[in-house]
Design a protein around this nucleic acid. Structure first.
Lengths: 186, 186
DNA sequence: GCTCACATGTAATCCGTTACATGATTCT
DNA sequence: AGAATCATGTAACGGATTACATGTGAGC
């Protein structure tokens, strides 16, 4: 059983409580999406793979007449999750930020276009910040109910992360307003 | 000519000065890699595409007897670059952070393992910070020579970004040390 | 003579998203 | 009645990485 990118997400979410594939996708979109996304095309095949490997167990669990298959983590699965969580180094880290890329090439822009770019970047991070803040009450409730404070701490991290970019844009705007030293001197 | 993920990087770098595919890859690995990566498998086909579309022009430019094809940006190419740089909204943004993902699921860890995890995350960001700092002198020189301060500002952004994670790990470590309120009260 | 950096390219492979197909149930 | 949500799944497509193949020149 080689672990793929979705393995830990699925395993981690099932460690909380039994869930269906649809359920997992919904939770991912409201939580890990901001630093670890997953699609149906990954989740459903992965559930079958993990079941075959004995890390999770599926049971038919229809709600009403509606088809539904819920999965529970097994003891082996919990072990595998713990192993992954506690295994050291080489944590995958990747950022794709088109705004920063554009800023990198901003020499080709006019001064007012540069400010506009920073404004656009700022606006997009502000939007994400709002989305995260909307989730916060639900995360706080979940924390109080389950006693697991890590999803809430992670959400707060996400908000602080957006704040970093908001501050960054403000600082860069100020630095662009400062007169830059010209070659040859004044 | 539909733009792909590498189009702006290639165009942006050629706007500075003529370069070979190999050269582009080298510069990318020392600069944009941290927020926008690119591989040979993308760069070389893209150069051919952009030349066919008339956005760049290639000239044989052997150094010694060594084969080398350098590309220059055309007026059309400069226009396309500017259009992309100045076009509004919907900036692609994506983060994949395995450390944060693990922290999200850290309820399944022992207290000391949680601290270890934060330490691992911290160490990896510190490592990236060091790499960026090593580039700084070269970036400063380039800034002084070319008058383009945006690569340097972007590098400084990258360092500040690593600092955000370093501080985050420290703050989270402190918060984990605080006694958490237990259900039912003390 | 050997190793490293310069240099170009592509094929195989892996991976993930998107879109579609299908259908039941609940809410308005 | 119709829309939205719950629910499962896959096929096609697009995109990117990896690895390989190949060769020159410079420095030790």
């Amino acid at each position: 059983m080689k672990a793929t990118a979705v393995t830990p997400v699925v395993l981690g979410l099932l460690a909380g409580k039994p869930r269906s594939g649809y359920d997992i996708k919904t939770v991912v979109d409201r939580s890990t999406r901001f630093f670890w996304a997953a699609s149906y095309g990954q989740i459903y095949p992965e559930l079958k793979r993990l079941e075959k490997a004995g890390l999770i167990a599926g049971v038919e669990d229809p709600a009403g007449g509606r088809q539904r298959r819920a999965y529970t983590i097994t003891a082996t699965g919990e072990e595998a999750l713990h192993d992954w969580l506690a295994s050291g180094s080489d944590l995958h880290f990747e950022l794709r930020h088109e705004g920063v890329l554009r800023f990198f090439f901003a020499d080709a822009l006019e001064p007012d276009e540069r400010l506009e770019l920073l404004e656009t970047i700022r606006a997009e991070h502000l939007q994400v910040r709002r989305e995260l803040q909307q989730i916060q009450p639900a995360a706080e409730q979940l924390c109080a109910e389950s006693g697991d404070r890590f999803p809430l701490l992670t959400l707060e991290t996400g908000i602080a992360y957006q704040d970093f970019f908001l501050n960054l844009c403000d600082r860069l705007k100020q630095r662009l307003a400062e007169p830059q030293p010209v070659k040859g001197g004044p």
